[in-house]
Nucleic acid binder design. Structure first.
Length: 481
RNA sequence: CGGGGCGUAGCGCAGGUGGCUAGCGCGCCUGCCUUGGGAGCAGGAGGUCGGUGGUUCAAGUCCACUCGCCCCGACCA
């Protein structure tokens, strides 16, 4: 353990102080930096490359399900934002306002979008006239500003990047189908690309999006036992359609309001990846989204330096389709580089030294287990390809096992309080459906209902974990980010 | 917005009962030597001590105000 600690002298131990570990990892790996603007972070190239891979994987899926990308204005006139009462009430405390253009005071304040429902709905109203114009299936990749009081790198920043889908449908059924479809896209994406298992379900009235009919969510469990909402999908019903007058003439010649959905995930997923997979040596990145999948570290000796350099360069080129970095610098020792690239979470490291050249082999080390294998050069490519798949799967398996171990079913409120304090994780319990109980539990334990899952229902005799009256929901509780 | 902590070299920090030329480690630059788990030696560069105002012969140090950041809490993707 002492030796292990020496390895990572730049990082706070994960078990010692999880929050500090998280910040250390992000800063030492050059993912992000603080800026001179309160609550705003700089996403540095390494962090941005990770975000780009996340973005690209999701963008493919969004397009594959029939959506197109577009871009809408950053500004939302105050009058538009105010149209949907519940919506403005929900977002008012965290909206940033533009009041001047140059030196002139604006006639009407402009909100910097805290989300784009208002501006997009006002435009959709102009676009939609007939049932033949439907559905509208549009996504936008954009920046968002929410004036948060407390910020945290990637998890909650004043400005952040996200995608927001905004769709309009002819019928309620179609909108509901879309809402669930995108929720499932998120789930599949999280599991496949981020190697992060999620629980899926509906938000309570208290937790739903301001202005939505129903909100659905995917929730992941971080290594410290706290939940992270990874993405949400909202069935907006006709609330926005009615106030923004998004109407169409249907086939039956009657005028109707559209049914809408919206759904989004943000750069907070980057923080999620750090907290789900990282360890005391730093990041552990799922191969599918890792900016660098394989790093070559040459083992130089003065006499064979040029030979080693040439060999590493050649081997690095022999891995087409794989994101490869060859660390040819001679200003750092191999040991330093091992630690450096492990901290950066690169899934596979390949060492090449004189002994390896003599034996026509390479040394391959996987980041997740640090297992070291000696592989003939001719088998390098196949081995790397296999390892990348294997690491992706074992990260998912490990996270899934962690999720299972830390999901506990409880029926006694005393036990509930004890568990949330000592073990964290998800607690599955029965609930009466009353907001009063939800509030009391939050007050007592800081745990909130993360979601009402689709695949669980209370037994007929079940009673509310809090008040003891008849329960009609079986839900997941957790402390959350 | 409440409670706590912190702003001194790129990073991490010491100095804090005012007093020599503001220091240490890492990093950086030059050279030599080295490289299989964070090498070594020698030389060198780098500072409006967060900002403003005050007290004083003298302020990194004391006082007031202010800006910013981090952590914990209440609020939130």
């Amino acid at each position: 353990m002492a030796a292990e600690k020496e390895f990572v002298k730049e990082l706070t131990s994960k078990s010692e102080d999880f929050s500090q570990w998280y910040v250390d990892v992000i800063r030492k790996t050059d993912m992000a930096d603080y800026s001179s603007i309160k609550g705003c972070m700089v996403i540095k190239p390494y962090g941005y490359a990770l975000w780009e891979n996340i973005r690209d994987g999701l963008d493919r899926r969004i397009k594959a399900t029939g959506h197109q990308n577009a871009y809408f204005p950053l500004f939302v006139p105050e009058s538009l934002l105010r149209l949907e009462a519940e919506h403005i009430e929900g977002f008012a405390p965290e909206v940033a306002w533009v009041t001047h253009g140059g030196n002139e005071k604006l006639e009407e304040r402009l909100a910097i979008r805290p989300t784009s429902e208002a501006i997009i709905c006002s435009i959709y109203a102009k676009w939609i006239h007939s049932y033949r114009d439907l559905p509208i299936l549009i996504n936008q990749w954009a920046n968002i500003v929410r004036w948060e009081k407390v910020t945290r790198l990637f998890l909650r920043t004043t400005e952040f990047l996200w995608q927001e889908g905004h769709t309009c449908h002819r019928t309620e059924e179609e909108a509901q189908e879309e809402t669930i479809k995108m929720l499932n896209v998120y789930k599949e994406f999280m599991e496949t690309e981020l190697a992060t298992p999620v629980i899926v379900g509906q938000k309570t009235e208290r937790e739903k999006f301001a202005g939505a009919l129903r909100t659905y969510t995917i929730e992941a469990l971080m290594a410290d036992g706290k939940a992270l909402q990874g993405g949400t999908s909202h069935n907006l019903g006709q609330h926005f359609a009615k106030v923004f007058k998004i109407k169409f003439l249907d086939e039956d010649q009657s005028e109707k309001y559209v049914w809408q959905t919206s759904w989004g995930v943000s750069t907070r997923l980057v923080g999620g990846v750090v907290m789900v997979h990282g360890d005391d040596a730093g990041l552990v990145l799922p191969p599918r989204i890792a900016p660098i999948q394989v790093v070559f570290v040459p083992i130089y000796f003065e006499r064979t330096k040029e030979e080693i350099r040439a060999k590493v360069t050649a081997l690095a080129e022999a891995l087409p389709g794989i994101r490869v970095e060859a660390d040819l610098r001679d200003t750092f020792t191999p040991g330093w580089k091992f630690n450096h690239w492990e901290m950066k979470g690169v899934p596979v490291r390949i060492e090449v030294g004189p002994k390896d050249i003599a034996k026509h082999q390479v040394v391959i080390v996987r980041r997740d287990t640090r297992e070291k294998i000696f592989v003939p050069e001719t088998e390098m490519r196949a081995t790397v390809e296999r390892l990348l798949v294997d690491i992706q799967r074992s990260l998912f398996d490990r996270a899934t096992a962690f999720l299972k171990e830390n999901t506990r079913s409880v029926t006694d409120y005393g036990e509930f309080k004890e568990l949330i304090e000592s073990k964290r994780g998800f607690l599955v319990a029965d609930w009466c459906g009353q907001a009063a109980c939800e509030d009391k539990i939050k007050e007592d334990t800081k745990a909130t209902i993360r979601c009402i899952p689709f695949d669980l229902s209370p037994s007929p005799q079940a009673t509310c974990i809090c008040c003891g009256s008849g329960a009609n929901h079986r839900v997941y509780f957790a402390r959350a980010y």
